[in-house]
Amino acid sequence: MSLTYVNQILPSLFSGAWMTIRIFFWTLVGALPLGVLVSMGLRSRFSPIRWVLNFYVWLMRGTPLLLQLMFVFYGLPDVNIVFARYPAALFAFILNYAAYFAEIFRGGFAGINHGQYEGAQVLGLTYTQTLRKIVLPQVVKSVIPAVGNEVINLVKDSSLVYVIGLGDLLRAGNVASARDVTLVPLILVGIIYLLLTLVCTYALRGLEKHYSYYR
């Protein structure tokens, strides 16, 4: 492995890694709050809302993310809904991961004893205050491991954007590997992915430690 060659291909790999990080970051920003809202809707007493949201979760979890990406970018233009490549990727990723997060948070909400809601009501807290100060901190603590698994998966799933022509990390490695007929770029891609997942792992452990007082 020549250091000169490594230095030559690193800029393109870092450029691809930056696209991967952008997809990862904005997917989390969009999917986590949407997942919380959907999870609350899944517990709604209004049946039509539950039916619609259950269908959405079933659809997103029951079809491959790769297919969803292709449908958003190549299929929706047939009904005059057109996305550029990057917004199409974000749209598909956010909808997909929000469905998974919704199921995770639904389980977290189900684990909260109903007596805590009643106790908060006795103390004069509004429903919003009860969620923000009492329920959500406990839910977040209980779902961190499951959310962490999805976060790690998201780092790797971001490579699927190649199907709509976005230049992510894996695509940059594949191009360099095919052009130069060497596995060195793919080895470097693997190292970068490992570093990204390592950062996520330590961040999640820090989050677990932050919520460790809820025991």
Rank of each mutant, 00 (worst) to 15 (best):
L131N: 01
Q116H: 00
L170P: 03
G165M: 10
V36H: 02
R215F: 00
S212L: 09
G206Y: 02
S177Y: 08
V155G: 08
L131D: 04
M19E: 04
E150K: 07
G30Q: 12
V151W: 01
I104Q: 05
Y162C: 13
I9M: 04
D180L: 09
T126D: 09
C200V: 09
A98T: 06
L76F: 02
M60A: 07
Y162Q: 14
I192Y: 00
N80S: 14
W58C: 01
I9Q: 01
I192P: 04
L166R: 00
A146V: 03
S47Q: 10
G173N: 07
M70R: 12
Q138W: 03
V199W: 10
V163T: 15
V82M: 12
I81C: 15
H114T: 04
A31W: 01
N80D: 10
K209T: 03
K133W: 01
A102K: 02
R215H: 13
L136V: 04
N174I: 12
L123P: 11
I144F: 01
T182M: 02
R50V: 14
F46S: 09
F101V: 08
P137C: 03
W18S: 12
E103Y: 01
Y127R: 11
V184R: 05
E103L: 07
T63M: 06
A146F: 06
S159V: 09
V29C: 15
G107A: 10
N149R: 12
L204M: 09
V181L: 14
I9K: 05
T201N: 11
L154R: 01
F109W: 09
L170R: 00
L154D: 08
G41A: 11
F83I: 12
D78S: 15
L67G: 15
A176S: 03
K133T: 10
T20H: 09
K156F: 14
S39G: 10
R106T: 03
T4M: 07
V29Y: 11
R85W: 03
F24Q: 11
Q121S: 12
E208M: 01
R43T: 00
L186I: 11
V38Q: 06
T182P: 04
I191C: 10
L194Q: 14
R205F: 14
A88C: 06
G35L: 02
A92Q: 03
G115A: 06
V57T: 08
I164V: 12
V143N: 03
K209H: 08
V189R: 02
G35D: 00
L65K: 05
G190I: 14
K141A: 10
L67F: 12
A172K: 01
G119Q: 11
R85T: 15
L65T: 03
I21S: 15
Y100P: 03
G119I: 07
R132M: 10
R106F: 10
I9E: 04
